[in-house]
């Protein structure tokens, strides 16, 4: 039996007295491309932050690669791309190569020294992302699209088994967005990288994801996109017009 890479059971979370996540349960298997969608304030980003240990859930459990999240240590197996960097200083003087190399720290033991293999991995990943030519440029000098590709390269450089993307294309123009999703699809299909994509963009989910999870503080739907579109329950929940719009944008 295939073990879930990620398993969430009965997860609850609230800020002060406001409920954000209520009894969330789902699993992700190796090779899945899971799309998580939901309206603003539905708890999507909080769920991602809980998975990564950035917030502590009030109740429930998270298991990563068979280990409880609290004791999980193999962070090199997970690549994370946030919607935006919370503390990023645009004057940060680091080059693209230096930033991408950060993605290799998770797998290292103290004192985390740099090796020749690290440089090769960075070079390989920059080539994979098609950004080798900007390796020596400063991260702060790049456009939003280029920065996002650099951060994806940072997330990918350790060749993670699970890639968590939190609304990664919000700041991108449609052409760059399409290219970005193409890259992630190739990683999923060719390298069997498991992808968990949080987005507002149901069109992208329909086009690329193999599974679809609709979240609105609780799990409203968990299944394939086709199952969602054929589900009478979802027609009842969203109304025929809204469901049609979601399902026929791709």
């Amino acid at each position: 039996m295939q073990v879930d890479l990620l398993n969430v059971e009965g997860l609850c979370f609230g800020y002060n007295s406001m409920e954000v996540l209520n009894d969330i349960s789902f699993g992700v298997k190796a090779g899945d491309y899971l799309g998580i969608v939901g309206p603003n304030g539905s708890g999507k980003s909080t769920l991602v932050r809980a998975l990564l240990g950035l917030v502590q859930p009030g109740r429930g459990s998270i298991t990563l690669f068979g280990a409880s999240q609290a004791y999980f240590a193999e962070w090199q197996k997970i690549g994370y791309l946030p919607q935006r960097l919370k503390f990023f200083n645009p004057n940060f003087p680091g080059t693209v190569e230096e930033v991408v190399r950060l993605g290799l720290l998770a797998g290292k033991k103290f004192p985390k020294t740099r090796t020749k293999g690290d440089d090769e991995a960075v070079e390989r990943t920059l080539a994979l992302m098609g950004i080798s030519e900007i390796g020596r440029r400063l991260i702060g000098e790049l456009s939003g699209g280029q920065q996002q590709r650099v951060l994806l390269a940072r997330a990918m450089v350790s060749e993670p088994e699970l890639l968590i993307l939190d609304e990664p294309t919000t700041a991108l123009d449609p052409e760059t967005r399409e290219h970005f999703y193409g890259l992630v699809r190739d990683l999923n299909r060719e390298k069997n990288t498991t992808v968990l994509l949080v987005t507002h963009d149901t069109w992208s989910i329909g086009k690329y994801a193999t599974r679809f999870l609709y979240l609105d503080k609780k799990v409203i739907f968990d299944g394939t996109f086709d199952e969602f579109c054929r589900s009478p329950e979802m027609t009842g929940f969203f109304g025929e017009h809204a469901q049609h719009q979601i399902c026929h944008r791709h």
Partner: peptide
């Protein structure tokens, strides 16, 4: 500083991203 250079660099770039890498 030399021993913790990489971790210091990581938290300087973005503390939350560093934390999500297990730092």
């Amino acid at each position: 500083v030399a021993l913790f250079y990489n971790d210091l660099f990581a938290i300087t770039f973005d503390e939350e991203l560093a934390k999500s890498s297990g730092i």
